[in-house]
């Protein structure tokens, strides 16, 4: 494990990942999932992360918003070191959970399995964080939540519980819930993998709309069409490392790496 965290962030990068390693477990059971990942995500850009399962794409995403603690390296979001603070003498301190919670509140995350709060209606799901984390009044939060639910096309479903919604509707509520915190960065962890094929389109349309509005997004997905159409930058990961990256036209149509060619042949 090498890598002291250096903060050589590109000035326009929203996310700067530097030599990030992640090891799960210890001793004989240790699994080295991320093996020195470097990634820059420009402000307002859409980065799509591709790769076979087990390649570490989800882990990378979860490290960006501190759901997993990184083993080595550094991650900066909007210039802030995630999860740690370096004092004047250069000593690294773990941040207090409250401060980490604050860092997370600026990053929206959408999960493969939605993870809506089942005991709350669609509207209550979207209102929860603004009221509880940012201290908005219920009336304000409700107004904003209604706007967001309209934006994802669910104005007629606000009083439904998640169990009463289709997978595509649930995922759109989950996107509205993440947007309610006015994030500067959105992370999507295989947002359409748990959906029936006919419901994938409605979720991708919402994401495309979001990308057009200038949101910075990192999307882990197997939807090559989405990557081709929406992504500014495509990253291919295999075995815990980024093996090829670039504009979608280059990466998807002219893959240099044989593993990527193989992957694309299987996915398309």
């Amino acid at each position: 494990m090498t890598g002291t965290a250096t903060s050589e962030t590109a000035p326009d990068a929203m996310v700067a990942v530097r030599d990030v390693h992640k090891v799960f477990g210890r001793g004989h059971d240790a699994v080295h999932v991320l093996k020195g990942v470097d990634l820059d995500v420009a402000r307002g850009s859409v980065t799509v992360v591709l790769g076979p399962s087990g390649s570490g794409k989800s882990t990378l995403l979860r490290c960006v918003n501190e759901l997993e603690e990184i083993t080595a390296g550094s991650i900066h979001v909007d210039g802030d070191l995630m999860g740690y603070r370096r004092d004047e003498k250069g000593v690294l301190h773990r941040l207090h959970p409250k401060v980490i919670a604050k860092q997370r509140s600026r990053i929206g995350m959408v999960f493969q399995r939605f993870h809506l709060f089942p005991h709350k209606t669609a509207l209550e799901n979207v209102m929860e964080a603004p009221v509880q984390v940012r201290g908005l009044s219920r009336a304000e939060a409700r107004k904003r939540a209604l706007e967001l639910l309209e934006r994802v096309g669910l104005s007629d479903r606000i009083n439904h519980y998640p169990a009463q919604l289709s997978g595509g509707q649930q995922q759109r509520v989950a996107i509205a819930r993440a947007l309610a915190m006015d994030p500067e960065l959105m992370l999507f962890d295989e947002p359409t993998s748990a959906l029936d094929p006919e419901l994938v389109g409605e979720v991708l349309a919402v994401m495309q709309d979001l990308a057009r509005s200038g949101m910075t997004m990192i999307v882990v997905t197997h939807e090559i069409g989405f990557a081709r159409e929406v992504a500014d930058h495509v990253v291919f990961m295999d075995d815990g490392a980024i093996v090829e990256e670039g504009p979608p036209a280059d990466v998807l149509d002219n893959p240099a790496e044989p593993r990527l060619r193989d992957f694309l042949a299987h996915v398309l």
Binding site: N65, L67, P97, K98, A101, K102, R104, S105, R106, I107, G108, M109, F111, R113, H115, L116, F117, P118, H119, E128, A129, Q132, V133, A174, R177, A178, M181
Partner: peptide, 24 residues
């Protein structure tokens, strides 16, 4: 996943327990 979703929204542990985990 419920705890993770709440964490990702920036909720603190105590709130996650009271508002998300305990009610379920």
């Amino acid at each position: 996943g419920q705890t993770e979703a709440a964490k990702a929204l920036g909720m603190k542990d105590g709130k996650i327990l009271r508002r998300i985990v305990l009610p379920q």
